[in-house]
Design a binder for these strands. Structure first.
Lengths: 254, 254
DNA sequence: AAGCGCGTTACGATAGGCGTAACTTGAAAG
DNA sequence: CTTTCAAGTTACGCCTATCGTAACGCGCTT
């Protein structure tokens, strides 16, 4: 068997697998039993039992064609969670405020599992806008999400930076040395602006959200199409985001 | 032990318990290990193992004081779920539209486990408004949510109506005969208006959302303070809700 | 100091639940 | 129309994951 970790018995494996199943269904709507089993490297009977259990509780729903989606109980959990996770609850109205003023898409991102993870967002009402999605992951090394990296202890920082940096566009930084230098600059100026590092033609501005001890717990971000974003806009975004960031820190009680 | 059902082994018990744990944390933010164990009638070690597993995966988060809340993974699941559950995805913008026009709170409710369950909502921007909450349950027999009952087969209907009807306010119907008569009326007129049956001083209007076969899969609802709601407003709400209902049915492909 | 209740650890016993193998069904291929 | 294949499902005996008991450490309260 593949025991990934020393695998102490202080954790329940079948629950672990069931979480894998849930996340798999979340990621692949209308997935079938066999696919889930394959994706997870588990047997079909096992996954069948899991899915049945989840279905009885409304966490997933089986369509009459035999495909699975998340169910209403998952909605309930998620709604409850957004009011229980302080960071998200507090950031949401602030993200909206910044988004309204900038008239562009805003996001709140944290470090999760060596990647940056979107946990809250706002999109303005306008035909062309950057698309954001809660749960979407991006590398920490590309785009303005680098701010999340910039304030870590140098050692941890290096640990978080993979050997080879993923190249998303031709502007993505792929040299470790250059990246570290860039992180230095970010730390000094307190924000990061990136032009087309993640997607061509997009400008992204991020500012760190600080905890009481100066550690970075999240980043607030504005993303906009490059063609309509002047230098002056970027400067405005930075100001807006800095305000937002300190407001969030304050409301968190720091 | 209490094996509620014949309890075949085609379902995984530990997963079932872990769902109980999740829902318990959802309902009681900042709950402690011992409380969860008590609520569920399980032993502490068992629940500890579950919570640890859930925590490692970000479904719950343990504060430094030892209390548990839902975590970021739950948010991700929930967001994904709202886009995967057709009914909710389609209803959301429509609920908002109705809510804007009525300038009052709107809800989408389904039957779940013998109760009515709110699975989507919209609240207008105004100081005084009815508070709605995704996940909140109400009896099927009180308020305008009765529409959910009105179109069921008489047999099933009677089965859903408990012996003694819970009294929420002095206007709540508590006589089974009267209730059945009321349901008849609702079926004939196609909507339900209730005055202060659930909460004093609140008016609630509901219209059923029909499936292709005429069965009711949900109800759309407007809730408003009685003092600012004239007869003419109620009539407007009914029209708005009927439009909304058929729009939802149509978008669901019926 | 003593007592209480919480979270946690250790460990041996047990039944929960796992995988193999076989069956059903329905669709695709020949 | 038969054959083949794969997906979903069921059955069941074995094994180990996981359960509960009991005990421990720790911080508060009395």
């Amino acid at each position: 068997m593949d025991k990934r970790q020393p695998s102490k018995t202080d954790t329940v494996q079948s629950v672990d697998v069931c979480i894998d199943v849930l996340l798999n269904v979340a990621k692949n709507p209308d997935i079938r039993l066999t696919e889930v089993a394959q994706n997870l490297g588990e047997t079909k009977p096992r996954i069948l039992r899991m899915l049945r259990t989840l279905e009885r509780r409304g966490l997933v729903r089986k369509s009459d064609t035999g495909t699975y989606r998340l169910g209403t109980t998952a909605i309930i959990l998620g709604t409850a969670a957004s009011t229980q996770v302080d960071l998200v609850r507090i950031a949401n109205p602030i993200l909206e405020e910044v988004g309204q003023k900038a008239n562009e898409t805003t996001q709140l991102r944290i470090i999760d599992n060596g990647e940056s993870l979107c946990i809250a967002k706002f999109e303005p009402m306008r035909d062309l806008r950057v698309q954001a999605m809660i749960g979407r992951r991006r590398p920490l090394t590309a785009g303005s999400y680098k701010v999340l990296l910039a304030y870590l202890h140098p050692q941890v920082q290096l640990q978080m930076i993979p050997e080879t940096l993923p190249r998303l566009t031709k502007r993505t930084i792929t040299d470790r040395g250059k990246l570290v230098a860039e992180l230095d600059k970010i730390r000094r100026q307190g924000f990061c602006v990136s032009y087309g590092e993640v997607s061509e033609q997009l400008v992204s501005v991020s500012v760190p959200v600080l905890a009481f001890d100066g550690s970075v717990i999240a980043a607030v971000n504005v993303g906009a199409p490059a063609f309509r974003t002047q230098k002056s806009d970027v400067d405005r975004f930075i100001v807006l985001l800095k305000e937002a960031s300190s407001k969030i820190s304050a409301r968190l009680g720091w």
